[in-house]
Structures are given as structure tokens and as C-alpha cells.
């Protein structure tokens, strides 16, 4: 079995700052990480590998420095890493990203065997759209399984897979045919630590690097900014609310303070008090 996991290298958004004057992202010095949601996808792939003996390919579209994230994927135990990098990909939105990645996936299929499962994370922490996975599935006509919390069974012979999917108000149990695209839900597993041998192998490994023409993209207008139907016209910082909080300055005991808080709340929201009282009444009756 062949499994491909799409991982994205993202700036660690916890450490991102916005330039106070120009409102641009100050990326300088902000470390990059593997999109945390993608680690759940990668670990799930590695578990399938442990169980079924699959080979796992990690795929990332990004700048040349994204090879660091791929190398890390190898350290965890992926068998192969492919970096898709080309300046024509710059500024891709989800439609253009899913196009480039699906072209790379096709090429991966030709070179290393058609994947039965393509994994993506639930979403990224920078783009944060959760659309690239479904986009790839649509393009490659893979059966789409999003928000998967558990892989219940995989029957390679019959080419079937059964999963649990997180719906809005419950869990769907779905069965479908391979090949599939799975977007893995967060907190469904915990990433392992590679062995010293894997770490050494990863440090030595060659990252397979392809550009647009390597994956057979002839029409560059489908890529990057030009291939993106969405257009970012304005980027701005959220406005601060005009007034800061009214501070409750109560002296005395905690109880006195608590009473002052309750008074302040109900003074501002008398309706809430009425409703809470009614609700309390309801309880006592």
C-alpha cells in the first residue's frame, strides 16, 4: 500500500507579530513548523504503515526552505519526501494549491505507485480554510472523507475502508472504496518520536524536489496568483474597541467585591437579570 501525506510548512503563528505601522506580517525570525494539524494525518499514516506495511510519502508545496519540514517528516518515519517548489506557485489560493498538489500526486503515483490513501490535515493554522483537502479529492476523484476521527477498518483486498467521521451533532460511520482522501481530525493520536536510526537516515536523505514542469504543469496560468480566483484586496489589523472595560473598583471583602460585580452586570443587562430570575423560578417551582 502507498500512502501520501500532504504537509504544509507554516510560520508558528503564536509568534507572529504585526508591524504596528504598516500592518504587515513581520515574518523575520518567526520560526516555521509543520502545520500542527498535519501531524495527526502523518501519525495516522505511520500507524497504517505499522499495521499494514505501507510506504509513506510526505508531500509539501512551499519554498525551498520547506525541505526542513519534510526532513522532519522523515525523522518521524516517513519513507520518502517530495518538495514541490516553484516561484510560479507563489500566492496560490486553495484552488491553485489543490491544483498543484494534485498534479504532484499524479506524478507521485506514476513514479512510486498510485496511493490508496492521501491524507491531509484538517486545516492549516495560517490559511486556515480546510479547503485544500476537499479540493484535491475533487480534482483526483478520490472519495472524500473529512474530519475523520478513527480508521475503523481497511480491507486492501476488497479496496474498502471504514471510518468514523465527526459530523455536526454526532459521529457518522462511513464505508467507501479506495482510493480515498482523508482529512484527519486533531487530537486523534499522538506523534511518535523517531529512532536514532531514522533520525540519521532523515538527516542524510535526499528530498525529492520538483518544479511546475516536473509535475507536468504546462499551463502556468493555473498556478499561483494567476491561477487563484480569489483576490486579497485589503489586509488590516482588527480595530481596537473604542473604549476599554469599565473597571469595577470595589473595596472590602471578596463578598463585597462579588456583590459589586453582580450589581454592575445587572445594571448593564437588566434583561439578563429578568431572564435568569425567571429561569431560577422555573427551577424552584
Amino acid at each position: 500500500m502507498h500512502i501520501v501525506v500532504c504537509i504544509k510548512q507554516v510560520p508558528d503563528s503564536a509568534q507572529i507579530r504585526v508591524h504596528p505601522v504598516t500592518n504587515t506580517i513581520m515574518r523575520q525570525g518567526v520560526p516555521t513548523i509543520i502545520n500542527p494539524y498535519d501531524l495527526f494525518a502523518l501519525e495516522e499514516a505511520l500507524r497504517l504503515k505499522d499495521r499494514l506495511g505501507a510506504s509513506v510519502t510526505a508531500l509539501c508545496m512551499g519554498p525551498p526552505t520547506a525541505s526542513e519540514s519534510l526532513r522532519k517528516a522523515l525523522t518521524f518515519g516517513a519513507d520518502r519526501a517530495v518538495l514541490l517548489t516553484d516561484r510560479y506557485f507563489a500566492g496560490s489560493d486553495t484552488l491553485a494549491t489543490s491544483y498543484a498538489l494534485s498534479m504532484a500526486l499524479t506524478k507521485i503515483g506514476e513514479e512510486f505507485g498510485t496511493p490508496e490513501i492521501v491524507f491531509t490535515g484538517k486545516q492549516t493554522i495560517d490559511g486556515d480554510t480546510a479547503q485544500v483537502g476537499p479540493g484535491i479529492a475533487s480534482r483526483l476523484k478520490l472519495n472524500q472523507l473529512t474530519y475523520i476521527s478513527k480508521i475503523v477498518a481497511t480491507d486492501l483486498e476488497a479496496g474498502r475502508i471504514t471510518v468514523e467521521r465527526r459530523a455536526e451533532t454526532g459521529t457518522q460511520v462511513l464505508a467507501t472504496k479506495l482510493p480515498v482522501l482523508i482529512t484527519m481530525l486533531e487530537a486523534t493520536n499522538e506523534m511518535r518520536r523517531g529512532t536514532i536510526a531514522q533520525a540519521l537516515e532523515a538527516a542524510r536523505a535526499e528530498i525529492i524536489t520538483w518544479n511546475a514542469s516536473d509535475v507536468g504543469i504546462e499551463d502556468l496560468t493555473k498556478c499561483g496568483l494567476r491561477g487563484s480566483p480569489t483576490i486579497v484586496k485589503k489586509v488590516f489589523a482588527p480595530t481596537a474597541r473604542s473604549e476599554a472595560a469599565a473597571m469595577i473598583e470595589a473595596e472590602g471583602t471578596m463578598d463585597a467585591k462579588a456583590r459589586a460585580v453582580v450589581d454592575a452586570i445587572f445594571a448593564r443587562a437588566p434583561g439578563v437579570e429578568d431572564d435568569l430570575t425567571a429561569q431560577a423560578l422555573h427551577h424552584y417551582v
Binding site: D93, T129, P134, G135, R139, T146, E168, S228, P229
Partner: peptide, 19 residues
Amino acid sequence: TNLGRDLAGSVATTLKTGL
């Protein structure tokens, strides 16, 4: 929602439009 995001991504890609 999980449902809307699941559907919107496929529909937009099928229609090749922006989302």
C-alpha cells in the same frame, strides 16, 4: 461547519471558482 466546509471545498473546486 464540518458539513459546510466539506461541501464548499468540493463544490468550489468542481466549479473552479473562488471560496
